[in-house]
Design a protein around this nucleic acid. Structure first.
Ligand SMILES: [Mn+2]
Ligand SMILES: [Mn+2]
Ligand SMILES: [Zn+2]
Ligand SMILES: [Zn+2]
Lengths: 140, 140
DNA sequence: TAATTATTGCAACATTGTTGCAATAACTAT
DNA sequence: ATAGTTATTGCAACAATGTTGCAATAATTA
């Protein structure tokens, strides 16, 4: 069973419909793996012969976010992006020169910080977002 | 000499004009210390009897960003915010229940990670953004 | 195949952000 | 204090993103 089929299963199991657009959006996000904006997703739907209204794309993104199938990432000075929730938690290296983005896995070093935050500020961390900005291999 | 006067000095020294709106925006951002959106800033200008056009506020935010007097922060699912660049680098604890935001200073533990990123991915980190989401003292 | 209703498209709207251009006001030099 | 220079501002017009209500459509179930 492929990963993506698990997603489809889950959607159906929860009593939701597996429509053409919904399925296509998951396929697109799954194939890209990383960072697609709402308008990029819409463009790819069109390209694959599935013209969807802007409203539908946003509503569907809302649905997939609620289902925890995708996550939202807001990069400084750029658009809002979406990506498939992957089993491996990762962060992003954003090149400020060529706009490329790579992923980076960092172990659980933030866990210690989050414990410290709880002790120090009594704030219970449930999630975090961490992006690095700088120059990629080619641009530096 | 107050901190804020240094900002005014710097603006003038660099050959820019210290207009009413520019000055008021710095005062507002300086007083708040943390996270104000463009429309909130505009509202506060109005409240202090200085009605400024939306265009002007955005142009001024652009100017202050370029001058490195303020920085931009994009919080997941929320607006774009601005805050005065403070001498002490810090991150934010965002409560997902009551929307409150507190600051947290975390030493230079990310420095080590950034060195590792350079070795591993040949990506030269110049900046980062890190926000924590969860439940504040009151909401947990 | 028919019935149910989740999903979709459309129109209309709200908010954020940008650009060109003419009017204004901050600063400089007299 | 005044006049001149031009950075800054306001306005109009626009573009992009995102949201809502409602009627039509299509995915699923029986
Ligand atoms: Mn990613
Ligand atoms: Mn802050
Ligand atoms: Zn690059
Ligand atoms: Zn709270």
């Amino acid at each position: 069973m492929r990963d993506i089929d698990n997603i489809f299963e889950k959607i159906k199991r929860d009593g939701h419909r597996l429509t053409k657009i919904r399925k296509a959006m998951v396929v697109i996000l799954f194939a890209e793996k990383c960072l697609l904006s709402a308008s990029e997703i819409r463009a790819r739907l069109s390209a694959s012969g599935l013209a969807a209204d802007r409203t539908t794309v946003y509503r569907e993104l809302g649905f997939l976010l609620e289902k925890n199938i995708i996550k939202e990432i807001r990069i400084a000075d750029r658009k809002t992006y979406y990506e498939i929730v992957s089993p491996e938690h990762h962060h992003h290296l954003v090149c400020t020169k060529c706009d490329s983005v790579q992923e980076i896995v960092m172990g659980n070093h933030l866990k210690r910080q989050e414990d410290r935050i709880y002790k120090k500020a009594k704030f219970k961390v449930l999630a975090h977002s961490l992006e690095f900005y700088g120059l990629c291999r080619k641009c530096k």
